[in-house]
Structure formats: structure tokens, C-alpha cells
Design a binder for these strands. Structure first.
Length: 536
RNA sequence: GGCGCAGUACCCAAGUGGGAAGGGAGAGGUCUGCAAAACCUUCAUGAGUCGGUCCGACUCCGACCUGCGCCUCCA
């Protein structure tokens, strides 16, 4: 098994990945709080999680991937002064908290599916795990790390000597109250609530009985409780946004290790932000871009995935429509190359990587040139097949094997998708590699990148009004006759007229094809405002 | 005040102590009645500024300048 290296926030260095159990990887990625739509910055985290998961699997690990859905008790402040975000959102929309949670959870998975993000093996909701949280808090309490004040149970960070190690915080240096009001109940400003009681928050919609009174859990505890339930008290990787380092993950570590007395997580991976011209996007500031905004502007969700892959996950990435245009153009070109290779590979048989072991994937062979695109049944399993990498490299020609190795090295080196992408381009334009083999290699790479190359369909049919389509076909036929008569003026006039209406004609060897102009897909000017518009 | 990141061609963006990936855009070419598409070729003697270490630095060190994130919820 090839060795992987990750940048571990705990220690701030690249470290070789050594799982607790050889050949297996337990991975927890912080999921969404479902009180609003995810914006494209949020979605970067889930694409990164997906890359971690796919990469581990691709390199042969058996992966247990767990993600939470936070559907309760997420205050707008870390103390008990704020409102519950779920509740506020529910009130604004005149729906119940559970309806809100369901609405945005569904929206979230619609987005992740469009981004080709594979669903984690376990997706767990906070509201389904309150008993586990209570049980965990009891252990923390039994170990003497808590105190009760003003109706809330607090975690006492002074009892946990290594508090803040992840974020390299020094408690003495933290400016208490610099940006948030001091909670008078706290003994130390860094203390945080494990359990709130309803006495401190009147309108809480969801409450549970607990040894500390009827109330609801603090935010951080759900991740500790659920990750331990599904991955054990110690596991390999925990990922999330870089913003979680100082508070959320720091507190998770403290409470988890206070409960078990054991080191909790081995590797902490944190993704940097997508930033706008005007600064970062945030839900609470309003005015953020959703995936749907991009789709409405004419982009494919995978254009955004490609855009993300173009930068390293630990670097801030500046979002711009110019950058997204670039990604879209690149992805189109990439798809064209794959389709062209597929034509050239023909019956020779490009097989999917999983075919290296014997079976031939129907989606990768032929089919595309015949009538009808392959149905869902023909799609190969999107999950990378563990252990296939070395076997495939062994089967390839030296030139292709070198490309695939370089790709693997890039991914193994802290998920360097920019380099990996360069290798994908390399294999697709390498004249030393036969088309079928180039395809096979590219598909293997795409099991990690997730750009859907193996499931490409030939030229999507433009969705236009049937009447309009008939009219276009008529004009195309007329132009064909004009061309035969060498009436270039008439032929060009028809082409120009259609172009003015946003329809592009292209004369190919097999006749004229038409498509909608790409320019029509460019984002409207109004959508270019960058995060400064006020919420409505 | 504390923690941290970044400044690479027109744009996005990698790697590297000794030949500066890749993509987009642009330019030239092949093809075409002309286009478009596609394909091929081309595109940073130089890496914010100034010093230092070194046989040699874009890469290490220091200073400065500029931009950015976090220390409230937040991916």
C-alpha cells in the first residue's frame, strides 16, 4: 500500500498517514447546520471531504466516512445569549424547526449530488443522538471536568491542561470579551456549555430531559458523541473548515479526551476558505452564492467542482465568475477530449479501472456512438475500488503507468489536486499512449477527481421549445440547399440570423449541427455582485 | 494584542536549492467556400521590494511593502 501524507493541523506539518487499524480509515467530516442553504464556500468543505474519502479508498483503505447533520441547538453565540439559528429560521419562514431541517437537508444533498460528492457511509442527525450526547456528558462530568452555573453545565477548560493545542492557543493571551460579551457564569472565558436548560432560553422548540434539567445540548458535543458512536473512541481523521480550529474542534478535543482519557483523533485536516472580492462569504452576513445561483447562471455544478480542484484545499481560493468561466471552458475541453478518445478507442475496448480485474464496465465501452446514452444501470460504481491502483499500474504501458504514478503521487502528497489535474491533462494528450489506455487511465484518475468522465454523454440535446427547434431545422435545411448551390450569401445570412438569436451552427463532416450559444450561459450582470448585496 | 496565510505570465494556479506544472484567454497554423468547432504550435532569462546565507535561490533566513483569514456563529 502506497503511503499517503496529510498536513496535520495538530503539529502543523505533513505527516505520513498511519491508521490505527492497518488498511482501515475512520473519517469524520463536520457536516452542515441545516438552517439555510449551503453556499459555495460551505460546499468546498464537502468536496474536500469527498476527496479525502475517495483518495483513501483509491489507495486501498477501507473507509468509514461519517458526517453529521446539525439540526438543533446551534446558537448564534457560543454562550447562552444568542438565538437558536434553527428556531430563528423556522420563525422567519413560519415553519417548524423539523420542517426547516428537512427542507435544507434535502437541499444540501441535492447540491452534493450535483457536485458528484459521494454520500458518506453514515450520515447522522444530532436530534437522533441526544441520548448519546447525554451519556458522554455524564462521563465528562464524572471525570470532574464540569461545573454547573446559571442553569448550564459548563466544561472547565482549566482542568484540561492541553486545551488549545490544536489552535496553538495560550489561554493567558486570549483577550476575553474582545469581541463577544463575557458570560458571567463562566469561570474562564474559554469555558463552553455542554448542556443548556430551558430556563435560559424560553422559546427553544426542541428540548430533552437530562440529569441537568430539561434543555438541549451545546453545539460541540454532538460531533464528539456521534463520531465516537460510529468510529470508536479513537479514530483516524477529522476534517472541517479552517474556522473550526480555534473553537469548535478545540472544544471537541477537550470534551472527548476528558471523557475517555485517550487521544481522540490522529489527523486533523482543515480546508481554507473560498473568498470573494469583498472578503469571505458567510451565512450570517447574508448575501452569499449558492450552487443553484451558479446553475441558474448557466454553469454546471461540475464546473464549480473543477474550479475547486484547480486550487489546493489548504489555500484560499478567490471566487470569481472569470475563474468559473475558465473552469467551465477547461472542463468542456476535457470532456471533448475524452469523447474523442472514446471514438478513437472504438471497439478496441477501453475498460474502466474496475475492469482491470476482469469485468468490463459497459459505460466505458462503445455505447456512446450508438443510439441512446447508457442508462443508470450502465454506470460504473462511482466509488473507487480499493486496491485497484497498483494492479492497474502493473497492467499499463510505461508511459501511461508513469502518468498514473505521478497522479497518485500528487494525490498522496496532501491531496494536490492541481498537480493531479495536470496529470489528467497529460494522459489525455500524450501521443505515446494509445486511446484505449489513455481512457482507462483517465477514468482511473477520475475515480478520485469525480468529474464524471466515465459517464459522459455525447452532446446533450439543447432543451428548447419544439417549435423553435423545428424552425431551426428548417433553416438549417434551407442553408444546406443554399450551400449546395454555392449561394454563400444566403448561407451566411441564415447562419448570422441564427447567431443573433443565440444559436450556433457548426458545419462538420457529417453535416450541420446546431447548439445554443455559450454566451447565453454567461452569468447575468446582476449575479456578479460579490457578496455585498443585502439579504432580503 | 494573539494565531495564521498569501504575493509566480493577461487571468486562475502548481512544483522546486541547480531546466518555472497545468488550465483559461491571446497569437500563429492545419481543416473549411467563409466561419465555427476540433487538433497542433506558441506564450514568465524571470517569480512584491530590499538585504543575507550558498558555488548556485523563485525556492532557505531577515526586514519592509501589499492583500487576506481567524481569535463572535461560521466550511
Amino acid at each position: 500500500m502506497r503511503s499517503l501524507r496529510f498536513f496535520n493541523t495538530l503539529g502543523r506539518e505533513l505527516q505520513e498517514f498511519r491508521p490505527l487499524v492497518p488498511g482501515k480509515a475512520g473519517f469524520y467530516g463536520c457536516g452542515p447546520t441545516v438552517y439555510n442553504y449551503a453556499h459555495i464556500g460551505n460546499l468546498r468543505a464537502y468536496v474536500v471531504d469527498d476527496l479525502i474519502s475517495r483518495t483513501l479508498r483509491w489507495f486501498g483503505y477501507e473507509v468509514s466516512h461519517v458526517m453529521n447533520i446539525t439540526d438543533v441547538g446551534h446558537l448564534s453565540g457560543d454562550d447562552d445569549s444568542g438565538e437558536d439559528k434553527m428556531l430563528r429560521s423556522a420563525q422567519e419562514r413560519g415553519q417548524s424547526v423539523l420542517e426547516i431541517a428537512r427542507l435544507y437537508t434535502e437541499a444540501f444533498f441535492r447540491d452534493t449530488e450535483r457536485l458528484n460528492i459521494l454520500r458518506p457511509g453514515v450520515v447522522c442527525k444530532a436530534t437522533d443522538h441526544v441520548p448519546e450526547m447525554i451519556a458522554l456528558i455524564k462521563r465528562i462530568e464524572a471525570n470532574g471536568y464540569t461545573y454547573f452555573a446559571g442553569g448550564n453545565l459548563y466544561f472547565d477548560v482549566s482542568r484540561f491542561p492541553s486545551y488549545g493545542e490544536l489552535a496553538r492557543l495560550r489561554l493567558d493571551d486570549l483577550q476575553a470579551g474582545a469581541r463577544v460579551e463575557i458570560d458571567a457564569n463562566k469561570r474562564n472565558p474559554a469555558d463552553f456549555v455542554l448542556w443548556f436548560t430551558k430556563s435560559k432560553f424560553e422559546n427553544q422548540a426542541l428540548v430533552w430531559d437530562s440529569p441537568w434539567g430539561r434543555g438541549y445540548p451545546g453545539w460541540h458535543i454532538e460531533c464528539s458523541a456521534m463520531s465516537m458512536k460510529y468510529l470508536g473512541e479513537q479514530f483516524d481523521i477529522h476534517a472541517g473548515g479552517i474556522d473550526h480550529i480555534p473553537i469548535h474542534h478545540t472544544n471537541e478535543i477537550a470534551q472527548s479526551e476528558a471523557a475517555t482519557g485517550k487521544k481522540w483523533v490522529s489527523y486533523w485536516l482543515h480546508n481554507e476558505f473560498i473568498v470573494m472580492n469583498s472578503g469571505k462569504m458567510s451565512k450570517s452576513k447574508g448575501g452569499f452564492l449558492t450552487l443553484q445561483t451558479l446553475v441558474d447562471a448557466g454553469y454546471n455544478a461540475l464546473d464549480y467542482r473543477y474550479f475547486l480542484l484547480g486550487g489546493h484545499y489548504r489555500s484560499q481560493l478567490q471566487f470569481s465568475y472569470e475563474g468559473l468561466d475558465s473552469a467551465r471552458a477547461a472542463r468542456r475541453s476535457l470532456n471533448e477530449r475524452v469523447l474523442a478518445l472514446r471514438d478513437r478507442a472504438g471497439e478496441g475496448g477501453a475498460t474502466s479501472p474496475s475492469g482491470a480485474g476482469g469485468a468490463t464496465s459497459p459505460s466505458a465501452v462503445g455505447g456512446m456512438t450508438g443510439a441512446g446514452a447508457p442508462g443508470p444501470a450502465a454506470s460504473s460504481d462511482p466509488h473507487p475500488t480499493p486496491g485497484n491502483l497498483e494492479k492497474l499500474i502493473g497492467h499499463l504501458s510505461p508511459a501511461a503507468a508513469a502518468r498514473l504514478k505521478a497522479f497518485a503521487d500528487a494525490m498522496a502528497d496532501d491531496l494536490s489536486t492541481p498537480r493531479a489535474l495536470a496529470e489528467l491533462w497529460g494522459i489525455l494528450r500524450d501521443s505515446l499512449v494509445l486511446p484505449a489506455e489513455a481512457l482507462q487511465t483517465a477514468f482511473a484518475m477520475d475515480e478520485v477527481l469525480g468529474l464524471g468522465l466515465a459517464d459522459l454523454k455525447r452532446e446533450e440535446v439543447p432543451s428548447v421549445d419544439p417549435g423553435l427547434a423545428a424552425e431551426i431545422e428548417g433553416l438549417v435545411a434551407e442553408r444546406h440547399l443554399a450551400k449546395k448551390a454555392k449561394d454563400w450569401a444566403r448561407a451566411d445570412a441564415i447562419r448570422d440570423e441564427l447567431k443573433n438569436r443565440g444559436i450556433i451552427l457548426e458545419d462538420g463532416p457529417s453535416g450541420t449541427v446546431w447548439r445554443l450559444e455559450a454566451a447565453a450561459l454567461v452569468a447575468p450582470a446582476g449575479a456578479r455582485a460579490s457578496g455585498t448585496q443585502s439579504p432580503t
